[in-house]
């Protein structure tokens, strides 16, 4: 937003009541609320809550006020969300002194919060590095015990069964190790280990959730999208968060496939949008079986558009078992059970 030169125009433009509007009973009562709020801000609250609570914003002259939540604070202006959901950008120098102070506090808090976040992330990464030795020793111990199992076991199924508790136990240890540094590379390796080694239950869920939460844009998670996709909510989260082209493409296609499987007409528009996105942006991306997504998405698109409930069935033109030509559409006017069968 650029700054306007005259306050009057600015106020009008951002939708505050123009000066000539008569004061209604409603605005009088609102005005009283404003006074009360201003009192609280000036005298009472030391640490304003930056949650999305509405407060009353007042202009410099004190004549006009509006109830709104702060959405974003820019250098010279503030973006407010009004009670009816609309957005208004107001120049800071149009605001009352109390509002300007509120904005300044808000800015200070946000800067401090961002700095703290950055610092935490850096520390988290740093501490992750420190954990590498410990990680290695847990994995060494696992490998050793797994080797013992293989040598003492008699058949494959028995070894598999005995291995599972070991995987669970190791997963627990590993997840605990990186609990405080979920964004570190070591943590990523842990989550992938847990998922790849077939951990189940809480451990698997924790690892998958952490991968989606912190590593949605890492190509390393590509082979595990199928596992993530078992939980539709996780898949949706991954799809919306992913920035890596391959991850985004595969997640988008899988989401379309999952949503289309229900054959729900209410979801069709969304499925078509996702598939068209795959075709236009991710056609050359390959899935974990190295098949490009483009042709797969086009086939699914055809199915959704032509083979869903409510669509006119595509015609079949062929020959019967005696070699006599006929068409499916010859049977219009009749109820038809179409049965794909074989005696093999």
């Amino acid at each position: 937003m650029t700054q306007e030169l005259t306050p009057k125009i600015e106020l009008h433009r951002v939708g505050w009541p123009p000066r000539h509007r008569p004061v209604s009973r409603w605005s009088i009562s609102r005005w009283q609320i404003t006074l009360a709020t201003l009192f609280v801000i000036c005298c009472g609250v030391t640490a304003p809550s930056w949650s999305q609570e509405a407060r009353t914003w007042t202009n410099a002259s004190g004549k006009f006020s509006v109830e709104a939540t702060i959405k974003e604070l820019k250098r010279d202006s503030v973006v407010l969300i009004l009670a009816d959901g609309t957005e208004r950008t107001v120049a800071l120098d149009q605001l009352s002194e109390a509002d300007r102070r509120y904005a300044a506090d808000y800015r200070k808090t946000m800067l401090a919060e961002n700095a703290a976040k950055k610092k935490a992330a850096a520390e988290s990464k740093q501490r992750g590095e420190d954990l590498k030795d410990e990680l290695q020793s847990i994995l060494d111990s696992f490998n050793q015990r797994e080797e013992q199992l293989k040598q003492s076991g008699t058949d494959a199924a028995q070894i598999r069964n005995a291995r599972q508790p070991l995987v669970q136990e190791t997963s627990q240890q590993l997840l605990k190790l990186v609990e405080a540094v979920p964004q570190s590379e070591v943590a990523r390796d842990v989550y992938i280990w847990v998922v790849r080694n077939g951990a189940q239950g809480t451990e698997a869920a924790t690892a998958i959730e952490a991968l989606v939460q912190h590593f949605a844009d890492s190509p390393e998670i590509l082979p595990f999208i199928g596992l993530i996709a078992r939980d539709l909510a996780m898949l949706e989260k991954l799809q919306s968060k992913a920035k890596d082209k391959a991850v985004k493409g595969v997640a988008t296609f899988m989401l379309a496939r999952q949503l289309s499987s229900a054959d729900n007409p209410a979801l069709e528009e969304r499925v078509l949008k996702l598939l068209n996105e795959v075709i236009s942006k991710y056609a050359d991306v390959s899935d974990s079986a190295r098949r490009p997504l483009g042709p797969q998405a086009e086939r699914l698109l055809f199915a959704v558009e032509n083979l869903s409930i409510g669509k006119v069935a595509p015609d079949i033109i062929g020959s019967d078992l005696d070699g006599v030509a006929f068409k499916l559409s010859d049977y219009r006017g009749k109820v038809v059970v179409l049965d794909f069968w074989g005696d093999w």
Partner: peptide
Amino acid sequence: AWRVRGWPTIYVLDKDGVIRFK
């Protein structure tokens, strides 16, 4: 063309050729 993955696969069409059940 019909993307059949399992056998048997059943479609039920109404008199207008519209897929109504699967």
